[in-house]
Computed example of a mutant assay.
Amino acid sequence: MSTPETPPNEQVVTNVRVDWEQPTTAAVPANQFATTVGLPAADGKPDGIYLTIGILEPPFLTGSPDEMQKQLQGLENVTTRLLGRYVLTRARLAELINLLQVAAKKYDAVSERGLNDDGGPAE
């Protein structure tokens, strides 16, 4: 929106704090990921990257090892439960990749050092 002080084709930039709402459900593990490049738009570029996240749980087997082997042989497939589908722009994909790389480095650093008795990272 333009104001008398701002020409219509000039952007106004301001900083706004973003607060995340608190989760209301438990975190769900995810172990299956798929991506699809979107269809091309009028300019020929893909309209985004489609990210699908799911979880594949092992089949529930009971009985002796031989009985479980027979149950496995009777399976034709196992199904990934869909957790969510998201569409990302190329720029947002780059942000997500960076965020995941930072998280992986932090995870590795904590894993290598271990944790103190209070649950915090070891010095």
Rank of each mutant, 00 (worst) to 15 (best):
A41P: 00
G48E: 00
S2C: 08
L72T: 08
Q73L: 14
G119C: 03
T35W: 11
Y50M: 04
N98W: 01
E21D: 12
R81T: 13
R92Q: 15
N9F: 15
N116C: 11
Q22Y: 04
E112I: 10
L115C: 00
G119M: 02
R92G: 00
P4L: 06
Q71T: 10
E112H: 11
Q71C: 11
A94F: 03
T79A: 12
P8V: 10
Y107P: 00
R17Y: 08
K45Q: 14
A42N: 05
Q22P: 01
E21H: 09
A27E: 13
T25W: 04
I53K: 02
L96P: 00
L83M: 08
P46H: 08
D118Y: 05
T52A: 12
S111K: 15
R17I: 09
T36E: 12
T24N: 06
W20H: 12
A109R: 05
P8L: 08
A109Q: 07
N31S: 06
K70T: 14
E21Y: 04
F33K: 00
G48L: 01
T89K: 00
Q71Y: 07
V110G: 01
A26H: 05
L100W: 01
L56V: 08
I55R: 14
D118P: 01
L75S: 06
P59L: 09
I55T: 13
Q101G: 04
A30T: 08
A42I: 06
T36Y: 07
Q71L: 12
G114S: 04
G54A: 09
Q32S: 12
L72Y: 04
E10T: 15
G38M: 04
T35P: 01
E57P: 00
N31K: 05
N9G: 04
T3L: 09
L51T: 02
P40H: 08
